[in-house]
Nucleic acid binder design. Structure first.
Length: 635
RNA sequence: GGUCUCGUAGCUCAGCUGGAUAGAGCAGCAGCCUUCUAAGCUGCGGGUCGCAGGUUCGAGUCCUGCCGGGAUCACCA
């Protein structure tokens, strides 16, 4: 997969040796094989230099953290800004005076700093054009710009999706899947080895309910006979069970039972429980039915996963793992970190950690959810010896993961420290939460169908691409609808609850996926036209070249991309990249409207703008790719 | 009730470890297509950053309290 950070610009005519300014060329001194910090060089250089200046000027060292470097706000002149307030305690001078002194020294000592100005306590630095142009030259055509070569270290395991097999995937799963997939890709881009795993909850009372209902009322229906996705069919029988079960409860209540009694004693539930027992005993018939119906579900899931572009390196099944974890519990008992109550149940006392007692094994010796998760964590550790175990799971399970980590630690497993719960917020609808009982759940397939139809309608209304074949059109609608959906969900900070407004999600204007995709298509269109005209993309004689303000701000943004990837990886937040790529696209569109590209008569400027366009296009494709979003050549 | 979390424009969201006059999009209004894709661009209006204290040169950001939403505290998963 990885082909390395090949820099392709040798085939072009950049003249790197031009003494453009007094600027020396930081980038030139560094290897081109994508070292992680190559693009933070200017920041590091400034910080280091400033520290030595402070030492010389005021005879004191200060903690590196007090050097606060930030982007200059657009309303002021400059590229980077140093906040001098924290430095006053050693300069013992006014903010203005301090900034002035430091500014002078920086310009003196660094070719990269062209000029400076001081506004209140802020020292604004103008970075030399040469720096930006060198950056452009080195990176504009680099396929994996901003990516870091994978380290030869332990992998990280990311678990996500983890569906139950009694219901089709819904909007909540969609957020989970998109986050898991995107975070995995982002961490790969940031130089990590990642193993994506799914843990399918394929056994338990829930699937037995579907099985029982199908047995009773299914009349041999299959996905083939009903022309319906397998997960839908099984889900329908789960609903059927619930409906019949409720009828029985009402009957029992009418006969004078309490609500709880009725719920416990309804014949259907007892039957389902009996079926679960038979399953656990390995009953041939039950196992066969179970395998058949789960098979239907997997076929259905596969279609949905494929449509979403989600994939796993390994799939675990709970039917294989649900008995795991008991040995860990026994081990904990021996070590005396767990305790057994009179009834035989096993607990872990977490009151010292501010939590309650937690059940680990029932009185009858059977597992609970926690027991299984202890076991699967151990299994995963044994399978991969990962540096990190990441669980993409909703924030309603925050407590569970806190406990999981603590319990594992109590048994002496140091690697428990490497468990990270990527806890994401609920997806709510404009009129409140999704509730399966009230039928307000948004089905993943239905949602994607609707998005597809909207993409089709919008494209047709705009009267675009009558020359597309039906296949090409369908492909475009697929890309656009997936882009709209994925972007809509991923642009929100994962930690926060989000509102999914169906009407807004299918909007293709403004801060949306299709807007970014459109910008990419627009760039591609320009590059095609330029190529037809025999233009030399990116071929620029850099001597004395002065980029326009808009061009420079584009370069500044592109310059931030590697850091954006790193930060998104660290915080496991695709939203950071989603917002980055939106700002980039918006900035490009402004550039596009302000300046001629192909029509620019000056060949040097024209080629630079073409190269810059290609650079932006590549970066959009790259960033959207990390969000799991494809971009079209035309739209 | 305990613990955790969230509260920024009418709506949906940004705002990096505290830094300059809090930003986008949608919705509303007004402009821009004989010129590189108008799924675009430009402009206008819209805010007591839930409230009150505190920390400091500086608080949407940190601390405390209160108000309001949400999650969780199962021998469910």
């Amino acid at each position: 997969m990885w082909v390395g950070c090949v820099h392709l610009f040798e085939s072009c005519v950049f003249t790197a040796s031009n003494p453009i300014t007094k600027y020396k060329g930081v980038l030139e001194q560094i290897s081109y094989f994508c070292p992680p910090n190559r693009y933070t060089m200017i920041e590091q250089l400034l910080t280091n230099t400033l520290l030595s200046i402070l030492q010389n000027l005021y005879g004191q060292d200060i903690p590196r953290k007090l050097v606060q470097l930030q982007k200059t706000r657009p309303e002021f002149e400059g590229d980077l800004t140093i906040v001098v307030f924290p430095l006053l305690r050693i300069s013992r001078k006014s903010p203005e005076q301090t900034a002035e002194e430091l500014g002078k020294k920086l310009v003196e000592q660094l070719g990269e700093v062209d000029a400076f100005n001081v506004i209140k306590g802020f020292l604004n630095l103008v970075i030399a054009d040469g720096y930006w142009l060198d950056f452009f030259k080195a990176s504009w055509n680099e396929q994996f710009f901003g990516f870091v070569e994978p380290a030869q270290s332990a992998p990280m395991v990311v678990e996500f999706s983890s569906p139950n097999t009694n219901k089709p995937l819904h909007l909540g799963h969609v957020r989970n899947n998109l986050l898991g997939e995107s975070v995995s890709e982002i961490r790969k881009a940031a130089g990590r080895k990642v193993i994506k795993v799914n843990l399918v909850n394929d056994r338990g009372i829930h699937i037995c309910k579907s099985m029982l209902a199908w047995q009773k009322w299914g009349k041999g229906q299959t996905p083939e006979t009903e022309k319906v996705k397998g997960d839908k069919l099984v889900g329908d029988y789960y609903v059927k069970f619930d409906r019949e079960y409720k009828k029985e409860i009402e009957l029992l209540i009418a006969e004078g039972k309490t609500k709880d009694e009725a719920a416990q004693q309804a014949p259907l539930l007892l039957e389902a429980k009996q079926m679960l027992k038979l399953w656990e005993e390995g009953d041939e018939g039950v196992r066969q039915l179970w395998a058949k119906m789960n098979g239907w579900v997997y076929e259905g899931f596969d279609v949905t996963y494929k449509r979403m572009g989600i994939g796993f390196d390994k799939t675990y099944y709970e039917s294989d793992t649900y008995l795991l974890g008991k040995t860990i519990v026994e081990e904990g008992l021996e070590k005396g970190v767990f305790f057994r109550k009179e009834d035989g149940s096993v607990w872990c006392d977490l009151s010292e950690d501010g939590l309650d007692e937690k059940l680990l094994l029932r009185a009858d010796g059977t597992s609970v959810y926690m027991t299984q998760d202890l076991g699967t964590a151990q299994l995963r550790y044994d399978d991969f010896h990962p540096s990190d175990l990441i669980y993409v799971v909703g924030n309603e399970q925050n407590y569970h993961f806190e406990v999981l980590k603590l319990v594992l630690k109590k048994t002496g497993r140091a690697w428990a420290e490497n468990i990270h719960h990527l806890s994401y917020g609920m997806v709510e609808l404009p009129d409140g939460k999704m509730k399966s009982r009230e039928g307000t759940v948004v089905d993943a397939d239905d949602l994607m169908d609707e998005m597809f139809a909207t993409a089709k309608r919008t494209t047709e209304e705009l009267g675009k691409f009558d020359d597309f074949t039906p296949e090409e059109s369908a492909h475009l609608y697929h890309i656009l609808s997936q882009g709209a959906l994925k972007y809509f969900i991923l642009k929100v900070d994962p930690k926060k609850n989000m509102t999914f407004n169906p009407e807004e999600s299918i909007d293709f204007n403004g801060h949306t996926g299709p807007f970014v995709q459109y910008t990419h298509a627009r760039i591609k269109s320009i590059l095609r036209k330029a190529a037809d005209a025999g233009g030399q993309t990116g071929d620029v004689d850099m001597a004395g070249f002065q980029p326009e303000a808009k061009e420079k701000s584009l370069l500044r943004l592109l310059h931030e991309y590697p850091q954006a990837i790193q930060q998104a990886a660290e915080t496991m937040s695709p939203a950071l990249l989603a917002n980055f790529v939106y700002v980039l696209a918006k900035e490009y569109n402004q550039f596009y409207h302000e300046l001629p590209i192909i029509k620019e008569p000056d060949s040097c400027k024209r080629n630079f703008r073409l190269g810059l366009s290609a650079f932006v296009g590549n970066t959009i494709r790259s960033a959207m790719g990390l969000l799991g979003i494809d971009v079209p050549e035309r739209m």
